[in-house]
């Protein structure tokens, strides 16, 4: 079927990653909020991982699309 699933996966995780990173930066000073995650700003760090994963998926999808266009 003509849809490369890596596009929606990449877009979704990039969006979620951006939201979590921005929220993590905005709430970074809230010590009370991050007490439950053992003092780690999980939104910032995990958001960056999700964003990285999303961008990687988008790169894979665009590379596959370029390869398919050449064939």
């Amino acid at each position: 079927m003509g849809l490369d699933i890596r596009w929606p996966i990449g877009i979704m995780f990039s969006l979620i990653g951006v939201i979590m990173v921005v929220y993590g930066l905005a709430t970074g000073g809230d010590v009370e909020m991050y007490k439950r995650s053992l003092g780690i700003n999980v939104n910032l760090y995990w958001g960056m991982i999700l964003l990285g994963f999303g961008v990687w998926m988008l790169l894979l999808a665009s590379r596959a699309a370029k390869a398919a266009a050449g064939k």
Binding site: Y23, M33, R36, S37, V42, W46
Partner: peptide, 11 residues
């Protein structure tokens, strides 16, 4: 509930 603050909780 124990470990996830708002944001990670949604995920």
């Amino acid at each position: 509930k124990k470990y996830c603050p708002t944001g990670l909780l949604g995920l």
